[in-house]
């Protein structure tokens, strides 16, 4: 009996009996569609790629465990996953605050500058990204969150409004203020 069960699982991995052993189809398509978005959002908020991978894994594990409780009438899957991601990032940052610095060192940003063609430009761009990200971590949490949704997850204002459950105008105002505060921090750091 035991051996029979093992064989069933094994063949499931080879493509037969898949329904029993593979992810639920809905979840699988959400994963395909939204995992890169969740990762980018998380990566924008966290200092290292390793931490971003860990937190992204945690997000989807939590989502999988809570799948039965997901209510499509209350939020789209994307909004739901982003909500889990926001909570996971908050928990992670709270943990790190007790443990260590949140600052990004230059050797931790190569995965963020992959589109710059020459080595010299990569270095300069890396330094600039380091400055921007470290500056953003001096902002209050709500500012960091809205900037991460826009520049990390790549959301438009309408999607940010849905994710934060606020109006489009409120998004524009908050973004404007967050950018202004970020610029003030960046300028101050540039002067120091």
């Amino acid at each position: 009996m035991m051996i029979k069960e093992e064989v069933t699982l094994s063949t499931g991995m080879r493509g037969e009996g898949r329904a029993e052993t593979e992810l639920p189809p809905d979840f699988s398509s959400w994963f395909r569609e939204y995992q890169p978005i969740v990762f980018r959002y998380v990566r924008f908020r966290l200092a290292t790629r390793e931490a971003a991978e860990d937190v992204t894994s945690e997000v989807f594990m939590k989502a999988l465990r809570a799948l039965d409780r997901y209510d499509p009438s209350r939020a789209s899957p994307k909004t739901w996953l982003l909500r889990i991601a926001r909570n996971a990032v908050t928990d992670h940052l709270r943990f790190l605050k007790r443990r260590s610095s949140l600052h990004v060192s230059l050797d931790r940003v190569p995965d963020l500058v992959a589109d710059v063609p020459t080595q010299e430009e990569r270095v300069l761009r890396g330094e600039r990204i380091q400055l921007l990200l470290n500056a953003s971590r001096e902002l209050r949490s709500a500012d960091q969150e809205i900037l991460s949704l826009r520049y990390g997850a790549g959301f438009g204002n309408r999607e940010i409004a849905e994710a934060l459950n606020i109006s489009g105008n409120a998004v524009a105002v908050r973004l404007h203020r967050a950018l202004a505060r970020l610029k003030a921090v960046v300028d101050k750091r540039g002067r120091d």
């Binding site: 593979e22 924008f44 995965d111 963020l112």
Partner: peptide, 21 residues
Amino acid sequence: IRIEERPSFGPELKGELTQAW
């Protein structure tokens, strides 16, 4: 700012999720 994901991260995570499921 472009965020480059490790290419194998997605498949690895999917494997973990499948195993958990």
